[in-house]
Simulated assay, not measured.
Amino acid sequence: MHWTAVTNRRELVPRVDDRRIPVVVTERRVEASGEEVVSLRLAAPDRRELPPWRPGAHLDVELPSGRLRQYSLCGDPGDTRSYRIAVRRIPGGGGSAEIHDNIPVGTALVVRGPRNAFPFAVPGYGSPAQRVRFLAGGIGITPILPMVRLAESLGIDWTLVYTGRARDTLPFLREAEQFGQRVTVRTDDRHGLPTAAELLAGVGTGTAVYCCGPAPMVAAVAGAVREIPGVELHSERFSAPPIVNGVPFEIQLGAGGAVIEVPADRSALDVLLEHRPDQPYSCRQGFCRTCRVRVAAGTPDHRDKVLTPAERDNGDLLVCVSRCAGGRLVLDL
């Protein structure tokens, strides 16, 4: 193999922490034109120190409506008394609209974590790479910014390509551009949609690529990296990966419980949440373990990246990505 998805190595994925932390919104800023992106700064009500985090980490945010949403931490890990997140408004309402329209300064929230499903394996410490190429698409800059700051402070050879529709739509652009010629800003209105070859220009053996952005961008970069020997790929999607070769199956909610149908093009988690809204989840990509359930009967189609053979034999299943090749799974719920 010519590439390694280092992000998915089990030793880089920490234990899931379900601690619930009360916080209050202490600052709110518009970070892109038309209020498309807002940032929130969160602190403990008594301003005590918050749990530490590392670049790539995110918070699970419990919204007043009961929705649970995940947002990357994009502030300074050295700031032990506040967290910063940023939220892009997504058309159609939902969690992003709730934050944009109904979460002013002073709002009390509860967060879980921090968790890290996109860790920065520092060259010379957690990675054999000699240099780093960061790729950020729009709001994908949020987990990348803390990595950039850490790479700069450690004297690592790094570059960043930051893409989006237009300059005024790019959040935290001023913070990114403060690093000078290491940063290339490429916007669709001036340069057209970027190709993977353009994003990876100059990338060769010994480079670690960190990519966060829209699914088509991540997929294109992943395909291109496979053709470059000796390159690591670390990536994070905005959404769950597409379901490939899925077939319909059934889930039974406990022995004698309700039976629900999972279509070929939907995940078990999506369907389960309609019946059990309190089902925990986080990454939706099969490596954080938050959504783990126990299978009491049936044959799973495991599609996760972290469960060991022993855990699978013991009945563990990650419902965000894993399925059943037809038939029924009885879950111990």
Results as ranks from 00 to 15, higher is better:
residue 89 R to S: 12
residue 210 Y to H: 13
residue 310 A to E: 15
residue 155 G to A: 11
residue 115 R to W: 06
residue 263 P to I: 06
residue 197 A to T: 15
residue 20 R to W: 02
residue 195 T to A: 12
residue 309 P to Y: 12
residue 206 G to H: 02
residue 268 A to K: 04
residue 127 S to Y: 10
residue 40 L to Y: 10
residue 322 S to K: 04
residue 281 Y to Q: 04
residue 163 T to P: 11
residue 267 S to G: 14
residue 156 I to C: 12
residue 199 L to V: 12
residue 66 G to Y: 05
residue 162 Y to F: 14
residue 45 P to V: 02
residue 49 E to W: 03
residue 9 R to G: 01
residue 98 E to T: 03
residue 204 G to W: 14
residue 43 A to E: 06
residue 206 G to N: 08
residue 211 C to N: 07
residue 106 G to F: 04
residue 184 T to G: 01
residue 313 D to P: 13
residue 224 A to H: 09
residue 113 G to Q: 11
residue 320 C to P: 07
residue 112 R to Y: 00
residue 308 T to V: 08
residue 315 G to A: 11
residue 323 R to P: 13
residue 141 I to P: 03
residue 236 E to F: 00
residue 248 P to K: 04
residue 168 D to P: 10
residue 80 T to W: 09
residue 106 G to Y: 04
residue 186 R to P: 06
residue 300 P to V: 10
residue 43 A to H: 02
residue 131 R to S: 15
residue 207 T to Y: 15
residue 138 G to C: 13
residue 287 F to W: 03
residue 234 H to V: 15
residue 208 A to D: 11
residue 230 G to R: 06
residue 310 A to C: 12
residue 251 I to L: 15
residue 194 P to W: 12
residue 135 L to W: 13
residue 112 R to G: 14
residue 227 E to N: 11
residue 327 G to W: 07
residue 253 L to N: 08
residue 26 T to G: 13
residue 133 R to D: 10
residue 261 E to H: 08
residue 46 D to Q: 10
residue 232 E to D: 14
residue 32 A to P: 06
residue 87 V to N: 02
residue 111 V to T: 00
residue 83 Y to C: 10
residue 291 C to E: 11
residue 85 I to A: 10
residue 320 C to M: 09
residue 279 Q to T: 13
residue 300 P to H: 07
residue 115 R to Q: 15
residue 96 S to W: 07
residue 11 E to R: 14
residue 197 A to W: 04
residue 248 P to M: 09
residue 23 V to W: 03
residue 102 N to Y: 08
residue 116 N to W: 03
residue 91 P to M: 06
residue 277 P to F: 08
residue 194 P to S: 14
residue 320 C to S: 09
residue 166 A to N: 05
residue 189 D to T: 13
residue 207 T to P: 14
residue 204 G to H: 14
residue 131 R to E: 15
residue 163 T to A: 11
residue 23 V to N: 03
residue 318 L to H: 09
residue 209 V to C: 11
residue 199 L to R: 07
residue 134 F to Q: 00
residue 117 A to N: 09
residue 298 G to D: 03
residue 248 P to D: 05
residue 222 A to M: 15
residue 324 C to W: 00
residue 111 V to H: 00
residue 41 R to C: 07
residue 265 D to I: 09
residue 157 D to S: 11
residue 62 E to Y: 01
residue 265 D to H: 13
residue 175 E to A: 14
residue 31 E to V: 07
residue 235 S to N: 08
residue 330 V to Y: 01
residue 67 R to P: 00
residue 146 P to M: 08
residue 202 G to H: 11
residue 74 C to T: 07
residue 232 E to Q: 15
residue 78 G to H: 05
residue 18 D to S: 14
residue 269 L to K: 07
residue 151 A to S: 13
residue 256 G to L: 05
